[in-house]
């Protein structure tokens, strides 16, 4: 009997937080189906699927933005995961491991936009500003920091011993990777791919700065719609922007729960 108030409080906290966590998606779905939803209406006076039926035809840039976002994120994620995987192995077994890892934290934590303003000059000189390649390289600068930190703890003494055993038995570097190291690295490789994909997928400031307005990804489009006060298109583009991260984060959670 004495636990009843505590249980009630627990239920209230869980229900409130659950509603708050679900609110973003629920609201965006509602806005994307709403018509003439202005102050002081608490709920949409009209709902219609018209926006979803016409947006692809009306907004030619939307499909190309989705394609640009997917292309950029996949390239950045694949590149930084693969480079980070082998670079972290070098860092982990280096005598300056701690110093090199500290260096990796700089791009991982610091603001891409502030550092991007400094890097912009180099990209201008290299002719990379205003190009998709420039945005990929700029995003990889930051995603690589994460990838190296992510894999640094993976390369422990046990994995080192495995690699050395394979080499002593006559395996070449590529054979060691292909037959020994890659098969035991599938899960961390996948997790790093998901995280770096999300980093790139979310990126706005760096894309605008280095892309120079010519590389239009989904976050750029959401910003444009929000700036134009076009809330219905902004909500639709926001939902499109949230679907892959949600799928990947739930996938990430499933992988972590499955493999520990």
């Amino acid at each position: 009997m004495s636990n009843r108030p505590a249980n009630l409080a627990r239920i209230v906290v869980v229900a409130t937080m659950g509603l708050l966590f679900a609110a973003p998606v629920a609201y965006l779905v509602l806005v994307s189906f709403a018509k003439h939803w202005t102050f002081p209406h608490l709920f949409p006076p009209q709902v219609s699927a018209e926006l979803w039926q016409t947006i692809w035809g009306r907004e030619q840039g939307l499909a190309s933005s989705v394609a640009a976002s997917i292309f950029l994120s996949v390239v950045v994620a694949v590149g930084s995961t693969l480079v980070g995987f082998v670079a972290a192995r070098y860092v982990s077994y280096h005598r300056w491991r701690r110093g090199l890892l500290f260096l990796s934290y700089i791009p991982f934590v610091m603001s891409p936009v502030v550092l991007g303003a400094c890097v912009h000059v180099i990209f201008l000189r290299l002719g990379l500003v205003g190009s998709t390649a420039g945005v990929i390289v700029a995003q990889m600068m930051f995603a690589l920091g994460f990838a190296v930190i992510f894999f640094a703890s993976f390369w422990n003494a046990e994995r080192k011993a495995l690699g050395e055993a394979a080499r002593m038995l006559g395996a070449t570097t590529l054979q060691t990777y292909r037959r020994v190291l890659l098969p035991i690295s599938r899960q961390p490789l996948l997790l790093c791919f998901l995280q770096t994909f999300l980093f790139s997928w979310f990126q706005y400031g760096l894309t605008v700065l280095i892309g120079g307005g010519t590389v239009k990804t989904l976050p750029v489009l959401v910003y444009l719609y929000t700036g134009e006060a076009n809330i219905y298109y902004a909500a639709a583009a926001s939902l499109l922007l949230m679907i892959p991260p949600l799928v990947l984060l739930w996938g990430n959670r499933a992988i972590t729960l499955r493999f520990g």
Binding site: F21, A22, P24, L28, W201, P219, V222, Y223, S238
Partner: peptide, 14 residues
Amino acid sequence: TIPLALPGTVLAFL
């Protein structure tokens, strides 16, 4: 997981 999937632009819009 839902708020974690919110990019900065969407978060600001909301």
